[in-house]
Design a protein around this nucleic acid. Structure first.
Lengths: 196, 196
DNA sequence: TAAAAACACTAACGAGTGTTAGTGTGAAAT
DNA sequence: ATTTCACACTAACACTCGTTAGTGTTTTTA
């Protein structure tokens, strides 16, 4: 089949995307060049095109991989029959874990989606809008059932998602805080704001 | 004195910076070109250099203008003798208002500082680190005085600042929510998480 | 072992980048 | 009225960009 598996269990295309994710985060999509990327992969720039179609295909792959993962999780939570607070906690914990474990990917989907070409850009934004809407619906449902405090659902979603995505700017400057401690501290703050 | 004031009370340099802030936000610093900017100003690209020294000078001006404004406010709050919760509310409200009223500038200082050249980059990051540290100290002080709930101060700062900076991705999609409502909803959520 | 497929290489393209040099022009200062 | 100064212009330089063509080399398949 494929000639090379540069690391076990990963095709060269996957290696490229992984290296690219690091580069895109550090420099931004626009400022990261294919020659830059090629050097990190250990190959000439032109050779990259034996594995990928374009620079923007890399961005698309990353953005939609992340979007799909969140969407899948959301559906699972929606279909479960936990109390609202537990649902929200599950979602918050997944977001934090994704942020800690797949940091580069999540960061790019969060900050570099602007550079997606149409029609992917619209597609991505639609998915994001839908995700937030459904998250808001869970909260609204909880309010109606009297399970959580009366609060503007959209504001709550905004606060929760933004707070988590802010971990990026924190993490590297506070290595003393362990991942578990950070997770539980954040959950505490964010869930407390929902409790009656 | 100066020949032109393209709008009353603003020099051409200020006009350039204002137009640039819009452009940098929409496209990102790297992807926004000087020829792009020139067109918005209504002038040829080369003419911009009669007013500014370089593209990156524009970014520096914006980033440090915002940083200084926040720093000045923080000092005022530190030197005041309100209870901790009032201090935090004042800071939160200023952040939200800055986000709503000087959106482009704040957004760029938040997202495009990466492209600052040294030594400005280090300088900016030091200021940011110091700002957060001092914010954390206010919270810690409040905990010691028993005025607010026991919580990890750094996590609280992270949640608060990130939540507010997330307004950008929200605002345009929810025009129905007025600025005042958004502000009071956010303050409610964020302050509630601090109360005993 | 021969044919085929996979993939890395060099060279180059056309377009776009920030920026500088040099020049012209009209308004302000003397 | 003349000099000075602010500022817009055109042209160009020296890159860098993503990407393609074409070729050689190595590995897999038949």
């Amino acid at each position: 089949m494929a000639k090379i598996q540069s690391k076990r269990n990963s095709t060269k295309k996957e290696v490229i995307i992984e290296k690219a994710s690091r580069l895109f985060r550090e420099k931004g999509f626009g400022a990261a060049s294919m020659r830059d990327l090629a050097e990190h992969v250990g190959v000439e720039a032109a050779s990259l095109y034996n594995h990928i179609q374009s620079k923007s295909e890399i961005l698309q792959t990353i953005c939609f991989k992340v979007a799909n993962e969140f969407m899948t999780n959301l559906e699972a939570v929606e279909n479960s029959s936990q109390p609202t607070l537990k649902k929200m906690e599950a979602i918050i914990r997944l977001h934090i874990r994704m942020m800690l474990e797949q940091y580069e990917f999540v960061y790019i989907a969060d900050h570099e989606w602007r550079h997606l070409p149409e029609p992917y850009l619209s597609n991505f934004l639609n998915q994001r809008r839908s995700y937030r809407k459904r998250l808001g619906d869970i909260i609204e449902d909880g309010i109606n059932k009297g399970e959580i405090k009366v609060i503007d659902p959209y504001t709550a979603v905004l606060v929760i998602l933004s707070a988590i995505s802010g971990i990026d700017s924190w993490q590297r400057s506070r290595k003393t805080t362990s991942a578990e401690a950070l997770e539980s501290n954040m959950v505490k703050y964010l869930i407390e704001g929902l409790k009656k």
